[in-house]
């Protein structure tokens, strides 16, 4: 096969991987701070995808512009969810948290199913079929926009955690829960904020993902699993790790699909996961536990 084919496929894998990485970042942020595994992650992204699809159908607003309001909506959703439902479960055993979030996932998926039916839906932007040609490489325009937006959102989030007082307070909660209570941080509110931010990442990722793929109400669990694979590969709690994990998985799947049979490409993503777990259990960019 000509080299340009590999190049094309790899570039596509990087860009898709960035969007996956942004989604996984949400999971990583939530787990890193709140220590709750969001088993409804993929379903929350499905919600974002449907909001993008519906608003696009009604108002013809570009999903890239919708990214901000959709992230805001998901933020409010995540905040309310943590404040009302999850905070009371923080001190409960992990299996009750698991049941709570799986129940939530099922409720979300089936509500979407009732409202939208089982068929795939998509948005048809003006550039949905555009692609750029750079030398031998043809790149999907929507993927470029989505990948770029994923980087922007990640940088913004990174800046928030590094530079703002509120971001530092959230990191403090993740660092030392007792310490946060001792200095009088409102930990429950910060948890809600964190869950909101994680959900906002998912919202942003979801609104970009509709540029790349269709949505059906039942795509959630696949994305939840993908987010787990990415986060564990990249390193739990590491923000650059989530993005790197996303890109790594994206490229691996793409190249594996090219070299072997595409139907087996997920196998290679899991193979990477297994290798990372064997040789670097804390993930590629994960920090050694203190």
């Amino acid at each position: 096969m000509p080299l340009s084919v590999y190049l094309n496929v790899a570039v596509g894998g990087v860009l898709t991987g960035l969007v996956y990485g942004l989604m996984a970042l949400g999971l990583s942020v939530i787990f890193g701070v709140v220590r709750v595994v969001n088993f409804a992650h993929g379903e929350m992204m499905t919600v974002a995808m449907y909001i993008a699809i519906v608003t696009f159908a009604w108002f013809h607003l570009d999903p890239l512009i919708l990214l901000v309001p959709i992230a805001a909506v998901l933020f409010v959703f995540g905040y309310a969810l943590q404040a009302s439902l999850i905070n009371p479960f923080i001190t409960r055993p992990e299996h009750s948290q698991f049941l709570l979030l799986v129940a939530l996932a099922i409720i979300i998926a089936n509500t979407l199913l009732i409202i939208f039916g089982p068929d795939a839906r998509a948005v048809q932007t003006a550039y949905a079929y555009d692609s750029f040609q750079v030398g031998p490489v043809i790149v999907d325009a929507a993927k470029i926009y989505a990948g770029a937006a994923a980087i922007v959102v990640t940088v913004a989030l990174f800046a928030f955690f590094r530079l703002t007082l509120l971001g530092k307070a959230i990191r403090a909660c993740a660092d030392n829960h007792t310490g946060a209570l001792v200095v009088g941080l409102d930990v429950e509110r910060l948890y809600a904020l964190t869950f909101g931010l994680g959900a906002a990442c998912v919202g942003a990722a979801g609104s970009m993902l509709v540029l790349i793929t269709d949505a059906t109400p039942m795509v959630g669990p696949g994305y939840t699993l993908l987010a787990f694979v990415i986060v564990i590969t990249g390193g739990l709690g590491s923000m650059p790790g989530a993005l790197l994990g996303g890109v790594l998985i994206g490229v691996t799947e793409a190249i594996a699909g090219l070299l072997f049979t595409p139907s087996a490409k997920s196998m290679f993503a899991f193979a990477i996961l297994v290798l990372v777990l064997l040789f670097r259990p804390r993930g590629i960019l994960g920090k050694r536990p203190a």
Partner: peptide, 29 residues
């Protein structure tokens, strides 16, 4: 957090600093 804000502070057993935050950030918090 309400207790602290009324002026009842605490230096807890085991110090409970935020290990990955810088000294300056610990003070900010």
């Amino acid at each position: 957090h309400r207790v602290c804000n009324l002026g009842l502070g605490q230096v807890a057993e085991g110090r409970q600093v935020f290990p990955t935050l810088t000294v300056a950030e610990n003070l900010d918090i």
